[in-house]
Design a protein around this nucleic acid. Structure first.
Lengths: 190, 190
DNA sequence: GTCTATATACCGATAGAC
DNA sequence: GTCTATCGGTATATAGAC
């Protein structure tokens, strides 16, 4: 692979340029998939946004599906993973979504691969949350909490419901935190 | 519409047969749109499911888009409209979704028309709910409640998260009611 | 390494035979 | 009224020129 190891001059070796192009294509793909969903985005559109030739997109990623797979990968150190605290997750979801997350959610209702990725992601978070709260119906209550955050994310960033898309990040976090923890904190109230 | 109620013979006048075919096409369309979303469903697929010729689909509805518009129309006397009570809405959403609602939700993230329909539908429900609860942040809290129910619906009927898709209708209604009313009923608790 | 040209395959929609 | 045949358009993906 790497053939110009000790080259001092043009820091832009062929492989470096190639890698840069590949990254630009991936960024463009995330935006296109995030804006239009899997089916409505075309490799031509991705190429246009990336400023490259359409055939280069497939040269680098093989197929539209493979490009989608690459585009929806969540970074390993995703903030949500570490955050057991509801408020942290809420804060993340109130703000603008990272491109790969937007691409993932946009297609979760129509593309099996995206649906599975979201399902596994949320099932994990439900397990973690359920282990923390305990009490009767812990898993179901955790699932409802996680589902509520998903609904809020969709309402705010995709459907743009009036009340939630016009509210400030702070207001969302403040009011939603109280609403979603009202139940979790009152587990003995029954 | 229904003209052959007590008919024992065929009684299939041309217009009656035509209306019956039209209804079969619409039913098939709702299922296809509901299962695959707008873009992945083909008029050929709708025709196949309806057991008619592909050209008949467009003969009756003009275009794929017009067919979609017809397929996502919610019945006028929609139960949710009348139900100001959260539990009633929850009950409806816990059970299997009616085909037109499933078709609508399936495409709400990718088809502008569906997105708008859901937005208007939910904005109305938020207004009604907000007027009922009052207090500070009434609209925002109502929006969070409605968004939570949407998230629960998506998690249960589309993503099939483990905890919510395996639970019984009764359990969902019971636990979700408590979770979502914990905040609404405690408006002075702050 | 990047772009041109094209193979292959469906799609929605239309016109006309039966 | 229903089906056959097809038009025109666009997509993914590939092969080869530069």
């Amino acid at each position: 692979m790497r053939e110009d190891t000790v080259v001092s001059k043009p820091m832009t070796s062929r492989s470096a340029r190639r890698a840069a192009t590949q990254a630009r294509i991936l960024d463009a793909a995330r935006q296109e998939f995030g804006d239009r969903g899997f089916e409505a985005t075309t490799v031509r559109g991705v190429a246009r946004r990336a400023g490259v030739d359409p055939s280069l997109v497939l040269q680098h990623y093989g197929s539209k599906s493979a490009l989608f797979t690459a585009a929806i990968q969540l970074p390993p150190g995703d903030p949500e993973e570490a955050a057991d605290h509801l408020a942290e997750v809420l804060k993340v979801r109130a703000a603008a979504l990272p491109p790969e997350m937007q691409a993932l959610i946009r297609s979760m209702l129509t593309v099996p691969e995206a649906s599975e990725a979201v399902r596994h992601h949320l099932d994990e978070r439900i397990d973690n949350l359920a282990a923390g709260i305990g009490g009767p119906d812990a898993e179901l209550r955790a699932a409802i909490t996680v589902s509520s955050i998903l609904g809020l994310t969709v309402a705010r960033h995709f459907l743009q419901l009036r009340a939630v898309s016009s509210a400030s990040d702070d207001d969302i976090v403040r009011v939603a935190s109280r609403a979603l923890t009202a139940d979790l904190g009152a587990e003995r109230s029954r």
